[in-house]
């Protein structure tokens, strides 16, 4: 590959790649990342992956949802779960080797960890006989802990456990519902949804559960916070009800200014950040079905990914590949 200035002819970047031609997309993605690195001095996401849930395998009378993984552009779908149950809310581990998710395969919603390159899974919440419902797993940035929502204490609260599910302890204790936790890039804070003031809003606390304060003040329905992983962009994306529809919005943590990322005629929800913090993935209703959409952090260059048939939703953008 040679990259040069058209008008001057100077070479900007020159590389050769070798390997098997059977998977040419790998070369194109590597080249794309090299070009981004050279031209924009930032790390590209062309070799990252996106996980999501899909009902494409549902049969009549059996409304199943299974987890799938695609390349960042929607190609190359790989099925992860095969249990013909509901499998929801995938959350990548920071090393990209596993995905935490909610599965109903044991009869109630529990957390599992899918070791995606080994084809095995691990129950994180103790087994369905324990009766512990859990939702919305989120790995800490160092991969050592998982935050999640659980009603095991009788009411939906935020819990944190070790990455293997051990040592679970409760962070919130509000009679209201507390749900959908996410970590700050430093791992020192957790944002979550709470309706303790009457409507669902985004709140922030430190990772020990102290210093709880409300973040969102615009709108009467905000949920599903995700913290931009880039320290250059201190901001949180979330789903907000705006004029009767759900849209992806971003709140700047310094100014508290809110910007609306989607302006869909259907609904959009479930945003997740690319590891660069420069792009978002979310799901939108397009043509009567939920589809995976990517856009930059301002909402420009929105692109619906052709990930395959069915409703495709609840995406999570995986980390950069690591050796």
């Amino acid at each position: 590959m040679r990259l040069f200035f058209v008008d001057g002819g100077q070479t900007m970047l020159a590389k050769q790649y070798s390997g098997k031609a059977e998977n040419p997309r790998v070369f194109a993605h590597q080249a794309a990342d090299d070009i981004i690195a050279q031209a924009l001095q930032s790390r590209g996401v062309a070799r990252t992956k996106i996980a999501f849930t899909s009902d494409r395998d549902a049969t009549k009378g059996k409304a199943t949802k299974e987890l799938y993984i695609v390349d960042y552009d929607g190609y190359n779908p790989r099925r992860v779960t095969v249990n013909r149950s509901l499998n929801l809310l995938p959350a990548w581990s920071p090393d990209g080797r596993s995905i935490a998710y909610v599965s109903y395969r044991g009869g109630i919603p529990e957390l599992f960890l899918a070791w995606i390159y080994e084809g095995r899974s691990q129950n994180l919440t103790g087994g369905s006989d324990k009766g512990v419902q859990a939702f919305s797993p989120a790995f800490s940035p160092d991969g050592k802990r998982i935050a999640y929502a659980s009603s095991r204490s009788g009411n939906m609260e935020i819990w944190v456990a070790n990455a293997d599910g051990s040592g679970a302890r409760r962070l919130t204790s509000s009679p209201a519902l507390d749900a959908a936790p996410c970590w700050s890039p430093t791992g020192q804070e957790i944002a979550f949804t709470s309706d303790r003031t009457g409507t669902p809003q985004i709140w922030v606390m430190d990772s020990e559960g102290l210093n709880v304060r409300r973040l969102t003040t615009v709108g009467d329905y905000n949920d599903g916070a995700v913290w931009n992983p880039s320290k250059e962009h201190p901001e949180i994306a979330y789903t907000s009800r705006i004029e009767g529809r759900f849209q992806v919005a971003v709140v700047d943590l310094a100014t508290r200014q809110v910007r609306q990322v989607t302006e869909a005629s259907g609904s959009c929800e479930s945003p997740a950040w690319a590891p660069s913090g420069r792009h978002l993935v979310f799901s939108c209703v397009r043509g009567g079905k939920w589809q995976i959409v990517t856009a930059d952090r301002e909402g420009r260059r929105a692109q619906m990914l052709d990930t395959g048939p069915g409703n495709n939703a609840q995406p999570d953008w995986g980390p950069w590949p690591t050796p």
């Binding site: 095969v82 395969r105 084809g119 095995r120 899974s121 950069w320 050796p323």
Partner: peptide
């Protein structure tokens, strides 16, 4: 940086496929 060299994403095989385990 290579992604996990030579590895492919695998379906989870310790779940019984087509089992109505709900």
């Amino acid at each position: 940086e290579p992604p996990f060299a030579g590895t492919e994403i695998q379906p989870i095989t310790d779940e019984t496929a087509n089992r109505d385990d709900l």
